[in-house]
């Protein structure tokens, strides 16, 4: 999947993604280390390691390895980088990621059934260019089937929103 910068299509290089992910891991390691110190990192005589003992060293290794990655990425900062993805590819990824974020937000406020209906409907109509009928059937059938399966047969409550509440579920 690696392509060099000379490749025909312009796009995002690995430079910033690499640095950002390394920074994230570094931040995570700092949180781990700080909280481990809070709960105690000692090795109590006769009792063995305390609650923070393992997380502390795990955090330290994470800090070292992510620091290593970060330094490596910064050292190569000015050199040519392999391509992360072309802009066109990233646009396609966003076409999925953005609706996905909206979907998850919708699940929280509208419940899973209505959001699923909207998500499937959106994809089939906008990307699939299906007819309204096919879209409607699929978009309604999938949430309805999950409703029957989970709420009715298996008795597993899934997140519901105001519309389901209105219908008395």
């Amino acid at each position: 999947m690696e392509r060099s910068e000379e490749a025909a299509e312009a796009g995002l290089t690995n430079r910033w993604p690499e640095i950002l992910v390394a920074l994230f891991l570094l931040a995570a390691s700092i949180i781990v280390v700080i909280d481990s110190i809070r709960v105690g990192i000692g090795w109590e005589e006769g009792e063995g390691p305390l609650a923070g003992y393992f997380p502390f060293y795990i955090g330290c290794i994470l800090m070292l390895s992510s620091g290593w990655i970060l330094v490596g990425a910064l050292m190569k900062f000015r050199r040519a980088q392999p391509q992360f993805a072309t802009w066109g590819e990233l646009k396609l990824v966003m076409q999925m990621l953005v609706p996905l974020i909206f979907y998850v937000a919708a699940v929280i406020y509208l419940g899973i059934y209505v959001s699923s209906l909207l998500l499937i409907g959106f994809f089939m109509k906008v990307h699939g260019k299906f007819s309204w009928l096919a879209t409607a059937i699929t978009a309604i059938a999938v949430p309805l089937a999950s409703f029957m399966l989970f709420e009715r047969w298996f008795l597993v409550p899934l997140p519901k929103g105001p519309i389901e509440l209105m219908l008395g579920f």
Binding site: L100, V104, V107, I108, S116, I120, F122, F123, V142
Partner: peptide
């Protein structure tokens, strides 16, 4: 994919939720 893609996402979301009945897990 325009059909199965969103359906997979729905299944994943239901799956993530049912593990602990938690919306946080879906996020």
């Amino acid at each position: 994919f325009s059909v199965i893609g969103p359906v997979i996402i729905v299944i994943c979301a239901i799956g993530a939720y049912t593990v602990h009945n938690s919306l946080f897990d879906v996020v």
